[in-house]
Amino acid sequence: MMARLDPYTPTPASRASRIVVMVLPFVISLICVLLSFVPISRIIGASTMPAFAMMAIFYWAVVRPEMFPVYVVFIMGLLTDLLSAGPIGLWAFTYTLTYTLVLTQRFLIINVPFSVFWFAFFVTLLVEGAISWTVASVIYGTLLPVRPVLAHVIVTAAVFPLLAFLFGRIERRILPTG
């Protein structure tokens, strides 16, 4: 912290690392959003895609919220809105609200074993599903079927450990620089 105040210009390495820290959340979110649209699940003949964006939001909101600011979450949601044909603002609102809720409950799940972390993610997904379902139902003016939302939640929770592992590696790589 104090090192920033000294008059020396930062070394190229530290400058590069700062750029990485700044750009990384955007790259991660962009990849996660795009990945949600790649028909991966059709390999096994299913049409429910996991919400990779939600995994990124949860993980980084709990582990390193200062690296994953709220506007990145908002952009993620907006991008999802634009890429899917749903109502504009649905995912921007859902993601931002979920991110805020996770931030407020963050102290409960910091430094817990992975199983608890995973369970917390599942609960978060249920909340997120409820929010998005309510908003979408209001917008469409009808009670939407709940089953696709539940399938979405379950698939996302099932794939989470994989992404959490990947994010963990990324985090350990950049931790010394941050």
């Binding site: 949600s36 028909p39 044909a85 599903g129 469409y140 939407l144």
Partner: peptide, 10 residues
């Protein structure tokens, strides 16, 4: 087809 629906509502 290059993309999936990307959400449970559409």
């Amino acid at each position: 087809v290059v993309s999936d629906n990307g959400g449970p509502f559409v």
